[in-house]
Structure formats: C-alpha cells, structure tokens
C-alpha cells in the first residue's frame, strides 16, 4: 500500500510540475489528464470509490476534452523567445523563498505525532454514503454549491456575450 501510494503521489507531483513547465499547451493538458488519473487512484486507495469514478468521468473525461477543444480552437502560438530571462532576480529570490517555506513545512510535518486515525465504516466512500452525507449533514453546502455554479455560468455569459449593447 505504502509503495503504491508513494508511486502515485510522485506521478501526480511530477505530472503537475510538467503541466506548468511545458511550453506546448496540448502537452500541458495531457499531463493534466495524467495528474487526474493519479489522483483518482489515490482516492481509490483512500477507500473513496465513488469520488475516484467521478474524478475520471468528470475531470479526466468531460472537462479535459473541453480544454483540448478550446486549446485547438484558439490555436495558441508559441510564446516569443527571450521571456525566460526576464525578472531573473525575482525568480531566484522567489524560488529560494518557496524552497525555504516548503522545507520548513516538511520539517514540521515529519516531526509531529500523527493523531490516531479513526477506523472507517465498511461502507465508507460508497455512492450510498456520499449521497447520505450530501442530503443530511452537508445539505446546506450542497445547495449553496448550486448557487456557486449558477453564478459562474451567468458570469461566463455576461463576459462572453457577443453583442456589446
């Protein structure tokens, strides 16, 4: 279990970094798909089968296809050369700070005592349990998420509507 987890975590991290540093947007998108699959597998390890399935169907399936369509329709050009050397000082300073913070976090996290994990109920992570918590304890967040999604849709329409009155 441990080895599988670390393999998956390494895949997710490396593919995540590749998403950011790839120049070609299509490659970035494909690495993002890999990242989603690795995450889905981690969810499976954590006994969350339903979430894992949703992750693959919704994110890796539907959303990434849309991403790729948009990238291809927009026909993004390669960025101009010479961008890499701009703000060099800031980049060095920033990466130094980021490394320091990450080192501090890792140091802290490894030295601590992990509180004992609660045993899971046998049906944890099943569709039934997810549905149950959505409609009982998490009812309000569930309803509010619908407002969040509505707002995002309305906003996209406002910003993208073709006719400027």
């Amino acid at each position: 279990m441990q080895i599988i987890f670390f393999l998956l975590a390494a895949t997710a991290l490396i593919s995540g970094i590749m998403v950011v540093i790839q120049v070609n947007p299509v490659r970035s998108a494909l690495f993002l798909v890999l990242n989603f699959f690795a995450l889905a597998a981690i969810y499976l390890l954590a006994n969350a089968q339903f979430i894992a399935a949703i992750q693959i169907i919704v994110y890796a399936g539907a959303i990434m296809v849309l991403f790729l369509f948009v990238i291809m329709l927009l026909n993004l050009r390669q960025p101009e050369e010479g961008g890499a050397h701009r703000h060099l000082g800031q980049k060095i300073f920033g990466s130094f700070l980021a490394t320091a913070v990450i080192a501090l976090v890792i140091y802290k996290v490894f030295r601590m005592v992990v509180p004992p994990a609660k045993p899971l109920t046998p049906d944890f992570g099943s569709t039934e349990m997810v549905a149950k918590s959505l409609f009982t304890d998490y009812l309000l967040p569930f309803e509010m998420t619908s407002i969040l999604l509505l707002v995002a849709v309305v906003g996209a329409v406002i910003l993208a509507r073709s006719k400027v009155e």
Binding site: Y138, L140, P141, M144, T145, I147, L148, V151, A152, V154, G155, I158, L159, V164
Partner: peptide, 26 residues
C-alpha cells in the same frame, strides 16, 4: 460554523466580484 461553509462563502462572494470587475469589456 464549518470550514466548508466558510470556503463556499468565500467563493460565492469572490466569483461575482471577479465578473463584475470585468463588466466593462471595452
């Protein structure tokens, strides 16, 4: 009373404001 609600609140507040700040598309 729950961090999930607070996070949802942050997002429901922020997304309309992102959109409204860009209202003048021209």
């Amino acid at each position: 009373g729950n961090l999930v609600i607070i996070f949802l609140g942050v997002e429901i507040l922020s997304i309309p404001i992102y959109i409204l700040s860009g209202l003048f598309r021209e």
